[in-house]
Simulated scan of single mutants.
Amino acid sequence: MSDHATDAATEAFVAHRNLLFTVAYEMLGSAADAEDVLQETWLRWVEVDLEQVRDQRAYLVRITTRQSLNRLRTMTRRKEAYVGPWLPEPLLTAPDVAQDVELAESVSMALMLVLETLSPTERAVFVLREVFDVDYDEIAAAVDKSPAAVRQIAHRARRHVDARRP
């Protein structure tokens, strides 16, 4: 890859890094796992021919979603041997807003516990649709399903989440 292409890939990745991190973190519940997914996303992204990519943001979200799904599947297999409850890692952003962080952490914890009951694909669809308002066609491409199947998965995931809301 030429230096110019590497620079363009780097610019695009950096421009969307916060979004990609948030997608991975919301799906995985761990900042460390989200960072690992971003590393894997970067390694795949630098191999892509940018001339062939119509929408860099969508392409990067697709790579991140697929990498997160792979990580979730691996974690599910790993967790079967773990005897304790799974809890998401808190993500602290600013120590001087303790009350806001405490509230956000408790809401985030509750959401992550509910999301834990969803399958990896349901979780990916729910997070991309409900949190990031990604359209069904883009989600379908990211999870390798048809848009109709994604709509059904989203409906089922919303029903599962609603059933567990206090």
Rank of each mutant, 00 (worst) to 15 (best):
M27V: 10
M27I: 09
M27H: 07
L28I: 12
L28H: 08
G29N: 02
G29K: 04
S30D: 11
A31E: 05
A32V: 07
A34Y: 01
D36L: 10
D36A: 13
V37L: 08
L38W: 00
L38Q: 02
L38E: 00
Q39L: 07
T41A: 11
T41I: 03
W42C: 07
R44H: 15
V48H: 09
E51G: 11
Q52P: 02
Q52F: 07
V53D: 01
V53Q: 02
R57G: 05
R57E: 12
I63Q: 04
I63A: 05
T64F: 03
T65L: 03
R66V: 03
Q67A: 03
Q67N: 04
S68E: 02
L69E: 00
L69S: 00
L69F: 01
R73G: 09
T74S: 10
T74D: 10
T74W: 01
M75C: 05
T76D: 04
R78M: 08
K79W: 11
E80D: 11
A81Y: 10
Y82G: 02
Y82D: 05
V83K: 10
G84N: 06
G84T: 12
P85M: 02
W86N: 15
W86F: 15
E89R: 04
L91R: 12
T93W: 14
P95K: 13
P95L: 13
V97T: 15
Q99V: 13
Q99E: 12
Q99H: 11
D100G: 14
V101L: 11
E102N: 06
A104Q: 10
S108F: 06
S108C: 04
M109A: 06
M109E: 08
V114G: 01
V114F: 05
L115P: 00
L118W: 01
L118P: 00
S119T: 15
P120C: 10
E122M: 09
V127L: 05
L128W: 04
F132P: 08
F132G: 08
F132D: 13
F132Y: 15
D133T: 15
V134Q: 08
V134A: 09
D135N: 12
E138W: 06
I139M: 05
A140S: 15
A141Y: 06
A142L: 14
A142I: 14
A142N: 13
D144V: 15
D144W: 12
